[in-house]
Design a protein around this nucleic acid. Structure first.
Lengths: 226, 226
DNA sequence: CCTTTTCAAACTGTCGACAGTCGGCAATCG
DNA sequence: CGATTGCCGACTGTCGACAGTTTGAAAAGG
């Protein structure tokens, strides 16, 4: 019970406690060790992690702003439970962001950006053959983050980073493995080809198709799980 | 100066302390009672408002997630100082959101929504003639919020609500009065006409023009102030 | 046996306090 | 006189504690 001896028990050691608690919670939620809708007790968490309630509270508020937790006044925090329409909304928002990023990116596309993106797709093809699903998802997110980063709008990137956590949760909730390696490769090469062509219309069609595939996966996944 | 007698001095009384502190800070920042880049001391704020540091901290974190404050580890919170490119990015993000909302809205537009929007524009024309600049800005934001709300994507709305605070700060930093009443009216009627026509292309042109006007104001405002 | 009331346990919101750290200023040295 | 180093004050990060409220269940009543 003593806090000093509980340090060995808790996963937390040093650095910013808030960040560490946030990391711990994020992973726990996405890996569904906490069920959707489950209530999280501040004191319980603080005890389990061997820290006081203050860092736990701050971390929870952070996750709330990222959409992984929801809070009810005087009731506490609950693991976000996404229903079908919310899942669709998230992917629709993602489409909104990436469409815009593609439109901006095609205007200031250069060899350096193309090479970086190309390299990332090659990496994705690599991990698609050998690595775990979560690794595939992470590399896919890295690619799309690069797309938005290269668009030049840092505010856009911030929004994307925010919904990234929500996206991971969505993907985890659907519980389906990612698409086939071939599909992944084809989809992403199409995006690069569209960018290289310099044609905005073609870019838009490419990203619409790309996110559309992802969204269809979501809708389909919902139909199966619920 | 004493903390106990400062209760009368402080603006805070009851309800959720966090919300009240957040409101107070938001208004103070947007009205520029705190200069951009100014450092905010937690203890100082807590003393001034007659509360403890905990609610102040939480409120500050909330404002940070909304982009009104930035935090440096171990240094504290600073009032967000927006430079030119950041202002442009914010308005570009806004364009991204509203374009998407318009595209979604035109697909499920009905008489009820049209009437609500129409009424709001009429209200805006009204306040454009008689009321203060801040009131005009608020009603303008209400209109654009309705636009996004009616698009049906609640996640989109959440992002918009987040950047609303940042938008107010942008507008305040530019320090220009809003456009002429005639301009406001024309711009917004054009949006409604485009929606009524049911033509996606026309909708897009209308919103592009609309936000473009706002962005030009921003760029122009920067050129003058800096 | 089912409904209602009451009570205790647990939890959140808030507070004051302590320790480690950072920034600025002065004293010392070259 | 300029640069470096040590010190002092202030502040953030973190902690434990208390009060009011909510929850769940036990007890009382129909």
């Amino acid at each position: 019970m003593t806090s000093s001896s509980a340090f060995g028990n808790g996963v937390i050691q040093q650095r910013n406690l808030v960040e560490q608690v946030a990391d711990y919670l994020t992973k726990a939620i996405i890996s569904q060790r906490y069920a959707p809708g489950e209530r999280l007790s501040e004191v319980q968490l603080a005890r389990d992690l061997g820290v006081s309630r203050a860092p736990v509270r701050e971390a929870a508020r952070l996750l709330e702003s990222r959409g992984l937790l929801v809070s009810q006044p005087r009731r506490g925090f609950f693991v976000r439970a996404l229903d079908a329409s919310e899942l669709i909304d998230v992917f629709d928002l993602r489409l909104c962001l990436e469409r815009h990023a593609m439109a901006r990116l095609v205007d200031n596309y250069d060899a350096q950006k193309e090479q970086a993106l190309r390299r990332q797709v090659e990496l994705m093809c690599e991990v698609a053959l050998h690595d775990s699903d979560s690794r595939k998802i992470e590399e896919d997110l890295v690619f799309h983050r690069m797309l938005i980063d290269f668009s030049g709008n840092r505010r856009l990137l911030k929004v994307f980073d925010d919904i990234t956590h929500e996206l991971r949760l969505c993907i985890a909730l659907i519980g389906k493995t990612h698409a086939e390696p071939d599909t992944i490769a084809t989809c992403h090469w199409q995006l690069l080809d569209a960018l290289a062509s310099g044609d905005p219309q073609r870019c838009r069609e490419a990203i619409d198709y790309h996110i559309g595939v992802a969204r269809d996966y979501v809708v389909q996944g919902i139909g199966e799980s619920s």
